[in-house]
Design a protein around this nucleic acid. Sequence first.
DNA 1: GTCTAACCATACGGCAGCGTATGGAAGGGT
DNA 2: ACCCTTCCATACGCTGCCGTATGGTTAGAC
Lengths: 181, 181
Amino acid sequence: MNRLSAGDWAKAALEALAEGGPAAVAVEPIAVRLGTTKGSFYWHFRNRRALVEAALELWEQDTERMIAALDGVGDPALRMRTLLENAMADPVDSAISFRLISAADDPAIAEVVRRVSKRRLEFMQTALEEMGTPSDVARRRIVVGYGSYLGMAALRRIGASDEPLTDFIDQVMAEIALPPS
Amino acid sequence: MNRLSAGDWAKAALEALAEGGPAAVAVEPIAVRLGTTKGSFYWHFRNRRALVEAALELWEQDTERMIAALDGVGDPALRMRTLLENAMADPVDSAISFRLISAADDPAIAEVVRRVSKRRLEFMQTALEEMGTPSDVARRRIVVGYGSYLGMAALRRIGASDEPLTDFIDQVMAEIALPPS
DNA sequence: GTCTAACCATACGGCAGCGTATGGAAGGGT
DNA sequence: ACCCTTCCATACGCTGCCGTATGGTTAGAC
């Protein structure tokens, strides 16, 4: 047999979201993708909304894992650089982040993406403050820096910039006033 | 009476796009918004696609107007600062840009938004080069800088940053290595 | 005042996706 | 061997939007 779990559906939903945006998180198309039918879906989930929420939870956990892994790095500058390198090397998260933000008309999505974004911003701001940067300055640098992460993903998406994100690590590091490698 | 023109529809479509995203560019809802019915719409336009294209053209013209206005400014540093101030003061364009990029699954939208984005990037890169910045450095700074413009709009949208964009002008100026005001 | 072109309202058919109902298959416990 | 739980397929009705057809209304030319 080829039976599915709720997790399989959630994973597929997150992939569909990253590729096709919120409109692509549709039950029947994903069922086709999984080689099954709606019958399976409505066994595992109450409705479409529940599927979206499950996908969001998957995504939120990724952020928590990343932060947990980096929390052990004592040197804040190294912590930031590692974070940037990981983030820039993986084009999937920025794509999903972008998609989710544009899907923020849905209050459920908005709430999660806001929570995750704030978490990320605070994590980075803390690193800068540990390096002696005043709070308000750190805040501005991080907002602009994280903004450029999101925005560059957007530019790559439409083909306005075809350079790999990794080309910009030093530039972003400089922007938030960290020493280049 | 209260008769409408094709331009009224295009304007309303662009507003709907900025507020509700691509899915909101729907004939019947916009008709309600305009206090009319589909009958009006299909008199002025062949189909929904034509409406989207008209809205895109409106938006593209805004960019051309802005560039034309700034082309007269001889000093490239002042030109950039004026551009940033104008851009940051108007939250609508960044919202639309963001929406359009996330709607780039539609090839028609993708093409326009890519063309406009490239135009903007080139315009800014030229300013930096006029100030003596090497081409490749200018390119990186502009991509990151314009990226942060888009990304910060995203962050404001979800409420992860509630500061007005104007608070970040100096930070962005510094990021692309321009003298602060 | 009449005529005509421009403009709009309404009714209809079609499609895609949501959610429900219901029956069936597969496999482990006993 | 039987049953019961788990899981899935199919059929159906509903809604929202697209696009068409068709008839009505208004403004101005004359």
